[in-house]
Design a protein around this nucleic acid. Structure first.
Lengths: 101, 101
DNA sequence: CGTGTAAGGAATTCTGACACG
DNA sequence: CGTGTAAGGAATTCTGACACG
């Protein structure tokens, strides 16, 4: 695991780095947008990747997105990627669809 | 500044990552071997680079080095690097010393 | 010299709830 | 729905000191 994905950043630094409030960060977690680890005592630990993620989420919310929209769009995206992958495999195996004509 | 040098890691994670005690980490700081930043409240913040540094220091201490040795050796090293740089510049400009003969 | 520890305080973070809209 | 806030408690971290060797 590289530095970017290692969960080592506490809440204080997170609010500094993202500009978000503790409330916002915890709320996004409760909605399944970020997944911090915990210390034995229960404190949250985030990665630099999480920082980028939070900033991206905040940006989308400012653009009028709702949290559910963000989650669903990403679900569709990963489904599409999966479908595209399967389709590509089928295509290379059978060439079952007309190209260009 | 990249992720490796950004000071975002608190004391708790530092002791986990390095295997050192808080006492050791603070003592090495008091001797000038690491330079954490501070939160407004006064808590120390370290970088991944500091983590590597601390592990290296601990390793040398186990090998029988003293903290002063570690500091002085590094001072000599950086002096040598500086001298080498200057010597190289002089050499390329004047060729004042015999090579090989 | 390098490290452990008990002491007391201050800063940090957590959860659940009430509020607004 | 997304966020602010006051409340109370628990976990975290800090400093300065005494101890050992």
């Amino acid at each position: 695991m590289d530095y970017k994905s290692k969960k080592v950043i506490g809440m204080g630094v997170i609010t500094e780095l993202t500009g978000l409030s503790e409330r916002q960060v915890r709320y996004y977690e409760s909605k399944g947008l970020v997944f911090p680890e915990r210390t034995k005592g229960g404190s949250r630990k985030y990665s630099f990747h999480d920082v980028e993620r939070l900033i991206d989420v905040a940006s989308k919310l400012e653009d009028g997105w709702r949290i559910q929209d963000i989650k669903e769009r990403e679900k569709r995206l990963s489904s599409k990627q999966r479908d595209d992958l399967i389709r590509g495999q089928l295509n290379s195996a059978f060439r079952t669809y007309p190209t260009k004509k």
